[in-house]
Design a protein around this nucleic acid. Structure first.
Lengths: 202, 202
DNA sequence: GCTGGCATTGAGCGGGCGTTCAATGATATT
DNA sequence: AATATCATTGAACGCCCGCTCAATGCCAGC
């Protein structure tokens, strides 16, 4: 039955949307079942009814956050770029642009990252997410390295993919905490640095 | 009177040490004045007596964390490396090694980063810290770029310094949440990438 | 040896939290 | 129309928090 949801799932979805709003404003510490209910003018007991414990709510919100963040999909326009390095750079650039257009998601992502430090299930999910993120860069990294294997003897696709993730997450950390952090300057440096990887342009 | 402290400062320092222990175990959420006191077998009222509010304690702990992290000092052995690029890489490598040797500090750093997202004073301190961190890389970045200005037209020292910070923080984010993240592989990729900046090695 | 001042104690206050649950209301089934 | 089912309400419980403060202990200056 496309376009509809079971009532139960519908309600859970509504709650998660409200929970994201609260978490985005107040952080995971400030996320309480009462505030979530209040935000949508529900009774205080509704949220605990649909999510047995707060932990369930937190885990479900993380799933919601990750699944509603289109990070894995290499869109057609980027997949269509023939040159692997250019594709790599285009993906980097698009991701950085997404960062600055969705700061609330990134902040919450790092909030969960910190939580994952002490919470096994959340750590597992964050680890998987970062792994998927790297995997998205891996095919391009492989192609880049394959073009000039002798030049990058010790560099592996996984290493290069990890570097790409660092570019993006590192940029997020700096730009979110410091609005004067110059993303264009940063991107120019990244482009130039990665541009050195090009197989000797004419 | 070297080697001694005023009793008041001595006590505050003891409290901050205990507070770091608690925060490292439980995170900033789990940091309570009672737990700090309990940890050192003090009465529950002692911590609020020396730090009027919990916010004061949190800010003081951040100051303590940042000032006791030797991040600014480019040690003599590194400063003595003649080649700027090699110096840059040596500093990167030492910082990454420090990350894995002091995971508690890094975790707490990111915990404060998240807090800084919503707390102006903490955000200000985190911004300043990241700025100092970039500045530590800047002189070397300037030298590297000065060697071949025509090759890196659009790259600025600030951009390159930001990239260096991303290398380190990005590595921390990935390796702390995922013990299987291969730091050596990552470092090899970073070295190779930055190595491309070398002024045409023989 | 007395005393004044300060560090320290530990009980207590008010408040917000997660969670529970009897009561209520709405809806679908018979 | 009667009833069973389940989402929803809102008050209540127990817990832990930051913070306060009278009482206590400790020690330097007289």
């Amino acid at each position: 039955m496309p376009g509809t949801k079971a009532p139960e799932e519908e309600r859970r979805s509504q709650i998660l949307t409200a929970a994201f709003d609260v978490a985005a404003r107040r952080g995971l510490d400030g996320l309480t079942t009462r505030l979530v209910a209040q935000r949508a003018q529900w009774s205080a007991g509704l949220v605990p009814f649909h999510f047995k414990t707060k932990e369930h709510l937190l885990v479900a919100l993380l799933d919601w956050l990750l699944s509603s963040t289109t990070v894995l999909h290499v869109t057609d326009d980027i997949a269509g770029i023939p040159e692997p390095l250019a594709r790599f750079l285009a993906l980097l650039e698009r991701e950085m642009h997404r960062l600055s257009s969705e700061p609330r998601r990134i902040r919450l992502f790092f909030d969960y990252w910190v939580m994952g430090t002490r919470h096994p299930e959340i750590r597992r999910k964050m680890r998987a997410e970062l792994g998927r993120y790297r995997e998205a860069f891996r095919p391009m990294a492989e192609e880049i390295l394959r073009a000039e294997p002798e030049r990058f003897g010790r560099v592996t696709p996984a290493g290069l993919a990890g570097l790409a993730v660092s570019f993006i997450k590192g940029c997020a950390i700096q730009s979110i905490i410091d609005p004067r952090f110059d993303i264009d300057e940063y991107l120019a440096a990244a482009h130039s640095l990665l541009g050195q990887l090009a197989p000797a342009p004419a």
